[in-house]
Design a protein around this nucleic acid. Structure first.
Lengths: 204, 204
DNA sequence: TCCGACTTAGGTATAAGTCCCTAAATCGTC
DNA sequence: GACGATTTAGGGACTTATACCTAAGTCGGA
């Protein structure tokens, strides 16, 4: 597995020093960006990784970057900043940063943070992978098959579903068999589990 | 609905001033504690509410209180502190505080924070109530009924479950009927939904 | 000691779901 | 215009599940 670290800082010296520091660990792929804007332009095409983020930058600030990639589980951000204060730290943490560290940082603290960040990244991408797999399977279903799945989720029998969709129970059976095949499952419970994972479920 | 605010601060003047400020809103029930220890002693018996928490206190600090009630969705904490710094703010946010505000705070900022906090509290307690209801129903099941439910979750038929438990398929049918009754559901899908909600499900 | 819950099990009937076969109209794509 | 996917549907055999009936042994608590 490639462990990628993105450095986003407008200060050449900071980028260089971080690069040197991180190069101690030879399992890291390091990419540097000289502004938040430059990073945001490419963010959709990037592999998952850790983002070491400066707060004060011309153009998009660290907070802008954080809010943009807020819910994307592909990235875990650590804010590294020169002039920090409580308000900024709180904002950054609310925006989902793993940590907010004032420069000068200690090398071993940063290294430990990186490990934590990679651990969280893995958790997040496992969860995301499960959701993705489930959604991909659901997406294969035809509209009618999806209708039937919804009926099954609600706990209705083929007969009732047929009545609601105004089609023959026989046809419901066929859609049901089709969706089981497309979802690659052999039991209703497995099908429902995929529906759960894909967020198809009513929480009420 | 009673909206409760707990004030935890060792400074008499701060407690009094917060009390006065919050009294403007006559829908709030206000309780004050002069130390983190005093609050923690009662925390298990308290109703859900917002905790306005000082950081620097003799005995249990604000962070101690935060970590103790960390995962309890009954409370949402806002840290109000005199001498704050970035490190403390980050620790508090990591420990689950909704916000970290330095004194002197502005009254309207605090009021807005309270609204946000109550909103989050309601979300959390709705979710918690669902989980509780589900767990309570699962807890009613006898050991054998639970075994059968696990088999159903795995997508096995009565016959297979009977074989695995080394009992008659007939008996599995009875347990199954019993658990449907105890769970107050009429379909497998509803039963599985309760099992999901109770966290009985394998994520792998 | 008796009551209630849990565990176990059979019979019989009906309902529901699955698995095999076939078949045709529609609709968009190459 | 032919090909594939979608939607629609029937028959028949087989498997599963449900809904009713009864019944008995164990074990802990009132």
């Amino acid at each position: 597995m490639t462990r990628t670290v993105y450095i986003v800082d407008d200060d050449d010296a900071v980028r260089a020093s971080l690069h040197t520091l991180l190069s101690i660990r030879n399992d890291l792929l390091i990419r540097s960006y000289r502004s938040g804007d430059a990073f945001l332009q490419e963010v959709n095409d990037l592999d998952p990784g850790i983002v070491l983020l400066d707060f004060h930058m011309p153009g998009a600030t660290g907070l802008d970057v954080l809010t943009t990639m807020n819910k994307d589980p592909k990235f875990v951000a650590i804010v590294l900043t020169g002039q920090g204060n409580v308000g900024l730290a709180v904002q950054a943490m609310k925006a989902g940063a793993l940590d907010f560290v004032e420069k000068p940082y200690e090398a071993d603290v940063l290294m430990q943070l990186l490990d934590t960040a990679f651990a969280r990244l893995e958790q997040g991408s496992e969860a995301a992978a499960r959701v993705n797999a489930a959604e991909a399977k659901i997406a294969k279903l035809s509209p009618r098959e999806t209708d039937v799945l919804k009926g099954l989720i609600e706990g209705r029998s083929n007969k009732i579903i047929a009545y609601e969709l105004d089609i023959s129970p026989r046809t419901v059976e066929i859609y049901r068999a089709n969706l089981m095949e497309k979802l690659e499952v052999r039991s209703l419970s497995e099908a429902l589990r995929i529906a759960f994972a894909a967020g198809l479920f009513p929480n009420s």
